[in-house]
Simulated scan of single mutants.
Amino acid sequence: MLRARRVRREDLTGPEFLDQAPARRRTPEDEALVADSVSRALLVVLDTLEPAERIAFVLHDMFAVPFAQIAPIVERTPVATKKLASRARRRVQGTPTVSAAELSRQRRVVSAFLDAARSGDLAAVLEVLDPDVVRRVDAAALAPGMSAELSGARPVAKGTVALAKRSQLAELALVNGEVGVVLAPHGSLVLAITFTVAGDKITAYDVVAEPDRLGQLTLAVLG
C-alpha cells in the first residue's frame, strides 16, 4: 500500500482543488476527515521508516502481535525485533527541540491558524498573524498568479482563506522538532509548513513542497 501511494500522487494544483470560492460551513463529513488526520499523519511518518521497523511497529503497537510471531516475518530474533519496534516508536513520536511549554504555545497558535484557515474565517486568521508576517512558498506549490513571497497580515490572510479547501486536508505534526502542518491526502506527503511563532502571533511561515526539501524534514506525529 505504501508503494502504491508513491505512484498515485495527488494532483493538488488543479482548479477544482484550488477552489477560490468562499469556504462553506463544515459538514459532519468534514469533521470526520479532520478526525482522521492523526491516521494520515502517522502514514507519512511510517513511510520514512525502514520496512522491518515499519512491520515490527505496526504489528506490535497497533495490532498487539507478540514479538515472537513478528520475528520470523522480519527475519530477526524476538529481541532484535523488539529493538526494531522501539526504534520505530521513537521516530514516530519524535523529539521536540523546544520545551514542553513552548511546544504547547506553538500548538495553540498554529491550531488556531489552521482552524481559521479551514473555515475561511479572515478575521480569525488575522487574529493570529503578526502585522509584518511573511509567507514563503516553494515553486512546486504555487498556484497560477500566486507570489512566492508575501508580506503583511492582510495579504497573507487573504491568500490563506482563498485556499480553505486545501486546508481541509492539512493536519498538525511535529516538523523538525516544532509544531508544523503537513498536507498528506491518503497519507502521501505533498507539502509541509514550518512556522515561526513569537508570543501568540505567527511572524512567518514557509510552505515546503519541493521533493528534495521535503526529504530533509524530520517528521513525527504530534501527540
Results as ranks from 00 to 15, higher is better:
43 L>S: 07
138 D>M: 08
28 P>E: 11
28 P>Q: 02
126 L>R: 10
138 D>R: 05
43 L>Q: 14
53 E>Q: 12
21 A>M: 07
188 S>I: 00
192 A>D: 11
79 V>W: 14
215 G>L: 00
141 A>I: 12
223 G>Q: 08
96 P>S: 03
76 R>N: 14
121 D>P: 02
161 V>W: 11
77 T>Y: 00
62 M>S: 02
121 D>A: 13
30 D>E: 14
72 P>T: 01
173 A>T: 01
77 T>N: 13
214 L>E: 02
159 G>V: 01
167 S>Q: 13
54 R>W: 12
145 G>V: 07
74 V>D: 10
155 P>V: 11
55 I>F: 05
157 A>L: 06
81 T>V: 00
165 K>H: 11
77 T>F: 02
162 A>N: 14
222 L>C: 04
160 T>L: 01
20 Q>M: 10
141 A>D: 09
176 N>C: 09
24 R>Q: 09
98 V>Q: 05
145 G>T: 06
40 R>F: 00
63 F>Y: 15
137 V>N: 09
4 A>H: 15
130 D>C: 08
70 I>N: 02
18 L>K: 03
163 L>K: 13
211 P>Y: 14
85 A>N: 10
126 L>V: 12
111 S>Q: 14
164 A>C: 07
13 T>Y: 15
142 L>K: 07
102 E>V: 03
72 P>H: 00
140 A>G: 10
38 V>E: 14
17 F>P: 11
81 T>I: 02
95 T>Q: 13
